[in-house]
Simulated assay, not measured.
Amino acid sequence: MHILIAEDDDPTARLVEHGLLERGHAVVRVADGPGALRAASDDPFDVVILDRMLPGLDGIQVLRSLRAAGVRTPVLLLTALGSIADRVAGLEAGADDYLVKPFAFAELAARLDALYRRPAMTDGPTRFVVGDVTLDLLRREVRRGDRDIRLQPREFAILEQLMRHAGQVVTRTMFLESVWNFHFDPQTNIVESHLSRMRTKLNDGFDHDPIETLRGVGYRMTSA
């Protein structure tokens, strides 16, 4: 794997770098947020290890900038902050996985392998059309009729799930697992708030909402 390590704590960065090099991976190290953003934007890394508390730009800011720019490289967020609220914040910003310091290198390596094995988001169809709504995964574009709809990364991912399963019910659990990689319920309105913002943008200027709410069940997108 070609791996970017964005970590300002030199002993931690050296430990991780040494372990990855021993396993035969190619490694690039940076020690601040601007460097991480620049490197991850310019080079095709397989995985990024991103410390949350970086100087210049913190890990959350780096993540949001990368996802807004359409960079979908898997990101493992490292942090000393381990509360559920902190985990939610990191995953909402676009992280694919989350590891709390201190950690065992064996666990880090296993998580990196899992992220690398995860199927690419562009496997299979890259363009979906449901009624007058079109979603293009490669261009990261959404159009309704002749209008461009600008969505944030999580909003885009929610709409993608609805369009992949057009005519079928998408449950809250399915959103949590596919969009946030949560395998637990954070007991917040994270799904509902993001979906509401996405629907507002999608329906602005139109008299029909293609997304049906099935209370207590989930959501369904149709062309009718």
Rank of each mutant, 00 (worst) to 15 (best):
R139V: 01
R144I: 06
L78F: 12
R147F: 03
D9V: 12
R64A: 07
L108C: 06
E212Q: 14
G94N: 06
R199N: 08
R52C: 12
A114M: 05
L54H: 00
I84M: 14
I3E: 05
M121K: 05
V142W: 01
E107S: 11
P210L: 11
P119D: 02
T79N: 09
T171R: 09
D207S: 13
D136Q: 03
S41I: 03
D132P: 11
A106V: 13
D136R: 04
T200R: 15
G216N: 13
M1Y: 01
M1R: 03
R150Q: 13
T173F: 01
H194L: 10
R127E: 04
H25A: 11
G82K: 04
M174N: 02
L195K: 11
A40K: 09
S178T: 14
Q61Y: 02
V48S: 05
G90L: 07
Q61E: 15
P153D: 02
V191T: 13
G124I: 07
D43R: 12
R199F: 04
D132H: 01
E192Y: 09
A166W: 06
A104F: 06
A166T: 04
E107V: 15
D185P: 13
N189I: 09
P186Y: 01
V16D: 06
T171S: 13
A157E: 14
N203C: 15
Q152Y: 01
V129Q: 12
